[in-house]
Design a protein around this nucleic acid. Structure first.
Length: 241
DNA sequence: GCCAACGTTGGC
DNA sequence: GCCAACGTTGGC
């Protein structure tokens, strides 16, 4: 396979922690959503994901995304937000990861490539932790929910010509042998440098370097196979097909 | 259910 | 551009 482009945008200055993507520190970056020659809006540029290097041999970049595996009714929409990893299993489903309304998380999605891998994290449950992996099956495209007045993620300030929000599609890749709980990850934090899950608790789309990813998979393989991952997923789905 | 952390909004 | 008020996330 030909090496894919690196996530790194080498000349991009390190953004301030709270900086918006439109920050003036990135003089060369394209402005948000100018319309390209083919009429499609261009996604905004991005994030400090450049710090996190992918696999140098395959060009694959690694990420972590969060989802809630337990039923919770969103008070605004009365909709259940529940989305366990098991919802992606077995039907060759692609799920559009839309509704993300945080600039840094969006910026991370914008630099994802098809074929990248994202760890799947269960949050807001008894034992939060990493339970599996999904693959990015479609690179960033405009998040339609921002135009839907009935959707909880509707954004009145966004326009078709100048969309603010972008999303990727994901599909199931594998379940972990066991859950890597947040507690365990915190306890082993010294082995997991630069892991934003531990330092930026509220960021829902997180870049993960290849080295870090490798360490996490090593940790996963240390323990026995576990059934309780906050959802039912067949043990046979541990390995990549 | 509580609340700390932190991102966003809007008045000035 | 500052910063107080507000809203949301997510661990506990």
């Amino acid at each position: 396979m030909a090496p894919k482009r690196k996530v790194a945008v080498s000349k991009v200055a390190k953004p301030k922690p709270n900086s918006k993507p439109e920050s003036k520190t990135k003089a060369k970056a394209p402005k948000v959503a100018k319309t390209s020659t083919n009429g499609k809006p261009i996604p905004p540029p991005t994030s400090h994901a450049y710090k996190y290097e992918g696999n140098p041999d395959t060009g694959i970049n690694y990420w972590l995304i969060k989802s809630e595996p337990v039923s919770r009714i969103d008070p605004k929409t009365q909709q259940d937000v529940k989305f366990p990893l098991s919802d992606l299993v077995g039907k060759d489903i692609e799920e559009t990861w839309d509704g993300v309304r945080n600039y840094e998380a969006r910026n991370n999605m914008v630099v994802m490539s098809k074929g990248d891998i994202a760890l799947f994290y269960h949050s807001n449950c008894d034992t939060p932790g990493i339970v599996g992996e999904v693959e990015i099956s479609h690179e960033a495209h405009v998040d339609e929910t921002q135009f839907n007045t009935k959707h909880k993620s509707y954004d009145s300030k966004s326009t078709r010509e100048n969309p603010k929000w972008w999303c990727v599609d994901v599909k199931f890749r594998r379940r972990f042998r066991r859950k890597l709980s947040l507690k365990e990850l915190q306890a082993k934090a010294d082995q997991l440098p630069e892991f934003l899950l531990l330092t930026r608790g509220r960021l829902s789309v997180i870049p993960v370097g290849y080295e870090l990813y490798t360490k996490l998979v090593e940790m996963e393989c240390e323990g026995d196979i576990q059934d309780d991952l906050d959802c039912e997923i067949d043990r046979a789905l541990i390995n990549v097909k």
